[in-house]
Structure formats: C-alpha cells, structure tokens
Design a protein around this nucleic acid. Sequence first.
RNA 1: GGCGCCGUACCCAAGUGGUAAGGGAGAGGUCUGCAAAACCUUCAUGCACCGGUUCGAAUCCGGUCGGCGCCUCCA
Length: 471
Amino acid sequence: MELQFYNTMGRTLQPFKTLDNNHVGMYCCGPTVYNYAHIGNLRAYLFDDVLRRTLEYFGYDVKHVMNITDVGHLTDDEDEGEDKMLKTSRETGKSAWEIAEYYTDAFFRDIDSLNIRRPTVSPRATEHIQDMIGLIKRLEEKGYTYESGGNIYFSIDKFPDYGKLAMRDKQDLYAGARIEVDSNKRNPHDFVLWFTNSKFEHHSMMWDSPWGRGYPGWHIECSAMSMKYLGEQFDIHCGGIDHIPIHHTNEIAQSEAATGKKWVNYWMHNEFLILGKGKMAKSSGEFLTLSVLVNKGYDPLDFRYFSLGGHYRSQLQFTYDSLDASRNAREGLFKRIQRLKAADEPSDINSLDGKAKEYLDGFKEALAHDLNTPKALSWLWNLLKDSSVSNSSKLAAAYDMDRVLGLGLAELQVETAQDDLPEEFKALIREREEARRDRNFKRADEIRDLLLDSGIVLEDTPEGTRWTKNV
RNA sequence: GGCGCCGUACCCAAGUGGUAAGGGAGAGGUCUGCAAAACCUUCAUGCACCGGUUCGAAUCCGGUCGGCGCCUCCA
C-alpha cells in the first residue's frame, strides 16, 4: 500500500517516495523551553508521533530529529523586543540555563505520559552554536549575507525562490500588513543570522563568533541541526502551520542557499488546536497544560485519544465536553480490551479470522491516506464490535493498530487481584453477600453506598460480586 | 488591505462526484432484588443558504451569510 501525504510545498497530496530506500529522515520543530508546553503544542508533537509511528508501521526505518530550542528567541523577528528566555529568567530569578533544563525535563515528562516516542535525536541549540556559525560562514562565502548595524542578515533578494512554500510573491509580500521595518535591513523581509547588537545588557547566553560576541538568529538552528543529523537533503520536515510564512520560509532560503540543493522533499504542517474564540499561544491567550488536565482528573491518554479524533490538518476545537467524550470513549475502549485480554490470548497476526483482516486493511488505508486517524479509529471500533471476529483475532488486530495509535493497549493490566483490598472492605463485601442471600437488600445497598464513598464500586455478576476502584 | 482554511445529527468528527465512518450523549429493550456493567435496537431523504455544472454533488464552479487562521513571537 502506498503512503500519500499532503505536501505544503505544492499544496497537494503526493505519493511518498524516500531518498534512500526504506530510510526516512524526519525533522520536526520542537519546543522552545522557556515555559511548559500547552496542549496546543502537544497536539503538534502528537502529530509528529503519529507520522513517525505510521512510517515505522509501513516498514520504514525512521530517524526522527527534534530540536530543543534553549536559546532565547526575541519576541519579534527584529532586533528588538524581549528575549523570552531572559524574560522568564528575570521573572523567576533563575539563570537562563536553569530554566532551559527545567522546562526541557518538563517537556519530556509530558511527551512520555502521552506515549509520544522519544525522538531519535533531540539536539540542543546551545550545543550546536559552532554548527550554526559554520552555516552562516558558508552563506557569507556565497555572498548571501551582509552586515548592518552590528548584525549579520540574510538577503532574500539573492534567493530567487524565496516565499515559495508560503506561496507568497516576494514583490508584494505582506503588502498592507503593519510591519515595523528594521532600518538596518535592505529588504524588510531579510532576517538576522547572527546578533551582536543586542540591546540586552545582561544577556547571559552569548558566544564568540567571527562577527563578534553574540547569539544566533532564530531560524538558523533548525537548518544547522537538521543538516548535521540528517544530511543536506532529507525527506520530511514538519511543524505547525504558523511556521509556514516565516520560519520555514527562512529555513529553506538559508539552507538551499548554503548547499545549492533542494533541501527537504515533504513539508507537513499540523493545524491548530482552537480554544474558545481562538488559538492558544505561549505568549498570549489562555494557557492550558497537560498538568491542568491531569489535575482535573483526566488521563493524559484522554488527550491523545482526543487528538486522534480529529485530522491533523483540520483545526480542532478544544472543549471539556469534547474531552469528556474522548475520556468516555477511551475508557470504554480500555474496558473492552481488558475483557478480551482476560478471556483470550491474541492470535497470530497473519491468521486473523472473520472480517478482522478487512478492518485492519481499512485501518492501514486510512493512515496511508494522509494520516486519517479519525477514520483509523473507526476501523478499530468496527473490529471490536463485530461479533463474527474471535476474541483472539480482535486482540491481535487491535494490538497491531495500537502500534500507531499508541494507546498502550497491549500493556493494559487486567484486574484480577481481588486480594489487595483492605480486610475491612473484604469483610463488608462478605457481609453484603450474606445480606443479599437473606434478601436484606436495605443492608446490601447500605454497604454498597458505604464502599462507594471509599471509591470502591461493586458490581453483581452471575459469577458473584466484583469490585473495581472508582478513579 | 493581502493570503488561506472551514461551516456535516444534541456534541465532537471522517468523508478521495455515485448516494452520509466512528465516538460521546440521549431513547427503547434484555439481564438484575435494585443498581452498575454488559449486550441488542434506535438516532441526518440530508451535509450553512441560493444558484449552476453533471445521468448523479456534502464533495466541482459562482454568489450570500457565518466562523477561524496567517501577514508580529507562536505548534
């Protein structure tokens, strides 16, 4: 089955062809670690994860690189505004380095709890300053740069294809938009490769360079680090749609100017998670983190399921009602799997019975068609609800699907231990059994309510009374 | 001002011109002392609205209304 992805470069659905057989080089824009990731950011990393898992599911060997931006970016793309890292530093009294370390750890904790597989390489920007300087030197040697007001700029007029990804004409790029023009720039859309003209007296993150002590512009790290780990040409570059007009446009310009070659074959961008009236952003608006959801009693995987329920290229509206629906669905799914698991072992994936194979094929086809996870999920439900498929085949097919869905179905614990309940509760359950036998239902219901207050749910089944913890 | 995306049941949400996936909620039923759970059944002659193209349109084209994003850091 052929994979098809929507390529932002060209805005069409295209068959996926790799540069090197079954090897895929994939670079995904990662977090700037000056604050926690909000759930909109996390949607993007979930998209990266589904993409990577899908490629692996289809037999590719994926090298997944995600940058950790621990160099502060300015709050705008000019040589002004405040550096975000330093802002947090000033507000918390910690050094920029401490802040970066703290939020990097927090980031990995978040993605771990969402079952997002760790990238193959997670390069830190601060550890690759020399690579960035090297790239800027190449650009300088080829005549793409100029120095002005103490900074090194990239001259977009030297790069004919500038703006191709964003489908914007260089001539009237952003006509009408209010732009504060940096008087040092020859073209308003030129961008900084290296700052030495910082107005921040106490900038703690500075490095020596051929152009003076300073720090890199915010686009150069992705070009330098992606090429270092994936080569000068690679298969996929992904990120949020917000990166199309500026960040990725500039990355392409500087990368292809430096190498003289096409840089990336497939550009994939995820749409935003919408909260209330609009998007979430770290620098403005509401700020919902995974911990906020967890503190409200949601499982991180509820958010993963929620994200799988919408296509990555569609805006997804976040509401607690929707998240509740996802939680209910996810819990129902887990219960089904646990019941199957308690009853049977998974069969061989190559000898599925009934229509299990059809459902699995449908699932694959949905993913192959530009990662249609909502449709893929529907195939999982169709599988589980089909009474003509044996438990063993359901389990085997569901586990297989979960290689992409990443809900941890194979690892689900089947609750069997009835003996880890405190003796007093077990005594109450025994008392209730007797009461029921004596048709003393008043006492039986009292005991059930009593245990419910302690978070123990009793269910009477033909095989006797079962209890579960009410989470 | 420029560019782009989207309007599908009570809610979320797929939909690749050929007759509306899936989930949640709701309703009815089976089972049960009652619950719960489970299972079964049910839930859009219609896809914002108006035209058009077509044998056939949620899907293509035009218009109207409404929502959102980008053009400034942003996933």
